[in-house]
């Protein structure tokens, strides 16, 4: 068992809250077993910013709300054999996607930003300026679930997923025998 090369895993957090990454810790002591089998490559957990080599599994939290998200996701797709979306934001856009359905107008993006930074009833922005630093990535016209940008192989549902579900998925994928989740474990919240 220990002679086998460890599986390489990369992770990224796109338009999400990092909660799914935190939920990885909910695997609890099983994490120790898991770490015997895997090695983390590019990931906020390792602070490695670029792929050091091709990975077996890429785990994506969050959907795509800006160009940088798209760029990262495409990079993951190119560099990972299996791509796994984790959490509702990656799966269907999640909370950030609320802007998609609500902001129907000729200029949805402008309306959304004005609502957020200027007109919103609870907005406290004395400068009345919408942030526009050149370092900020351009926003997309709407929030896209990951599967609309690249092909996603598996999804781990939840907001955030429970430790059980994450473990079930990772253990299954690492053994090459992932057959879906126990129905009783599936949650979309």
């Amino acid at each position: 068992m220990s002679d086998l090369p460890k599986a390489r895993i990369a992770t990224a957090s796109l338009a999400g809250c990092f909660g799914c990454h935190m939920a990885l810790l909910d695997i609890d002591e099983r994490l120790i077993e898991l770490m015997k089998l895997v090695e983390f490559d590019r990931s906020p957990l390792t602070d490695i910013k670029r792929f050091t080599r091709r990975c077996d599994i890429g785990i994506i939290e969050g959907g795509c709300c800006n160009e940088e998200n798209v760029h990262v996701l495409q990079d993951f797709r190119r560099n990972c054999d299996i791509l796994v979306g984790i959490g509702q934001c990656a799966i269907m856009g999640g909370l950030p996607a609320m802007r998609n359905a609500i902001m129907h107008s000729d200029e949805p993006l402008r309306e959304c930003l004005e609502e957020a930074y200027i007109k919103g009833p609870f907005t406290q922005n004395k400068t009345q300026i919408i942030p526009n630093d050149p370092a900020l990535p351009l926003l997309l016209d709407k929030v896209y679930p990951c599967s609309e940008v690249v092909e996603i192989d598996y999804q781990i549902p939840g907001c955030a997923p429970t430790g059980d579900v994450i473990y079930e998925a990772l253990a299954g994928l690492l053994s090459g025998r992932f057959q879906g989740f126990e129905r009783e474990h599936i949650r979309f919240d």
Binding site: E67, V70, E107, P108, L109, L139, E151
Partner: peptide, 18 residues
């Protein structure tokens, strides 16, 4: 699809408003 990236997603039109 090239590199399993979706042809239906068009980054150019997605960022044109922004």
């Amino acid at each position: 699809p090239k590199d399993r990236i979706r042809a239906t997603f068009d980054i150019q039109s997605a960022i044109s408003d922004a």
